[in-house]
């Protein structure tokens, strides 16, 4: 979301001002808590008004999010939050709209709405909390669960392949695509800030631990002592390099991108990350680097491209026609087909 030009100074707020009076009811130890905290701590810094902020969600554990925010909010129905948010954004471009949902909500029942919201590039910030499991219904596989996974609904192992949410978003022409995780507040806040400032639809996949039904799904890459070697931090304009000593890097090859030893190829051969590239192919290749959450995985902004924002384009059309033809008069409308007098 672009910063709204506000003639009056935005009143200073604290974390408490953004907390609703409702008791937070996620399981103790759930990754959702740290995401909620990160956002409630960040929002006072963003210079936005609570009454202009709206959280819209679908169904699932993550979708309880709006109830905990002292903003406007709607907890809607399974999968439909991006559609409802799109209508609200078209009607009210003055609002800062956040959509929160899980992997089942956004990629399964609501997959169609997600891809079209991204394609249209309406000014909404979409946060997908990916825990690779259905939590609220107590442990079925989700569209991001890994093949072979044993769950209550796949007792002898899941036989289908998962979605890669970043690849899906890029395939849907999303103009802002990022990934973060629930163990790094600073990184989360940086991604949220970037999404908020982006004009158009922003998509952030947040790796989120479900400590009850899928505990440790991302531990191999997000635990403190693993991050250096397992998380590839994407920084715009910088060579893509990771490892405790910066010993690993990413180079582009005709077939995509691959991880290399920097000592073997030299820093100058590494791919320099350009998040603004209009062609999403390189970003897509980066999203394919890891095919499971036990492999070095890129985090950060994959893509931040400038594309026309949908709601303002639509409203420009409406206002443009009104300006060109003058404000519509009902009487003229009723007389616009051939008429006759009796």
């Amino acid at each position: 979301m672009t910063d709204v030009i506000d003639s009056e100074a935005v009143p200073e707020t604290s974390r408490a001002d953004w907390q609703s009076d409702q008791e937070v009811r996620w399981c103790p130890g759930c990754g959702d808590y740290s995401i909620l905290t990160a956002l409630q701590l960040l929002l006072p810094e963003l210079g936005v008004r609570r009454e202009k902020t709206v959280f819209i969600s679908g169904i699932g554990c993550a979708a309880r999010f709006p109830y905990y925010m002292n903003t406007y909010g709607m907890h809607s129905i399974h999968g439909r939050a991006p559609a409802i948010a799109t209508g609200l954004a078209l009607a009210r471009p003055d609002l800062d709209i956040w959509v929160v949902g899980g992997d089942g909500d956004m990629l399964s029942i609501g997959g169609n709405h997600l891809i079209h919201a991204l394609r249209r590039n309406t000014n909404i910030n979409i946060l997908l909390f990916n825990n690779q499991i259905y939590g609220l219904t107590k442990g079925q596989f989700s569209p991001t669960s890994e093949s072979g996974k044993v769950t209550k609904s796949s007792p002898v192992g899941l036989v289908s392949e998962p979605f890669n949410p970043i690849s899906v978003a890029l395939g849907a022409e999303a103009s802002f695509v990022a990934r973060s995780h629930d163990m790094d507040r600073k990184h989360l806040q940086e991604m949220f800030t970037r999404a908020h400032r982006h004009s158009g639809a922003s998509f952030i996949e947040v790796y989120q631990n479900c400590n009850v039904f899928n505990d440790g799904a991302f531990a191999e890459i997000t635990k403190k002592d693993a991050r250096d070697n397992m998380l590839i931090n994407l920084v715009h304009g910088e060579p893509i390099q990771f490892g405790s000593e910066g010993q690993f890097g990413v180079v582009q090859t005709p077939g995509g991108v691959v991880i290399v030893d920097v000592s073997e190829v030299g820093v100058e051969s590494l791919l320099v990350h350009d998040e603004t590239r209009l062609n999403p192919s390189t970003a897509f290749s980066l999203s394919r680097l890891a095919t499971g959450s036990n492999m070095p995985t890129p985090v950060g902004v994959f893509r931040a491209a400038v594309r026309e924002e949908y709601a303002s384009a639509m409203s420009n059309q409406v206002m443009g026609v009104a300006e060109e033809r003058g404000k519509g008069q009902l009487k003229d409308l009723l007389h616009s087909l051939p008429t006759w007098e009796v």
Binding site: I56, M74, S76, R80, A83, I84, A85, T86, G87, L88, A89, L90, A91, R92, L95, N112, H113, H116
Partner: peptide, 15 residues
Amino acid sequence: IAAVGSALGASYGGH
């Protein structure tokens, strides 16, 4: 579904 959802979102916003 998105058609009615968007209409509901617009209603919520006062349209």
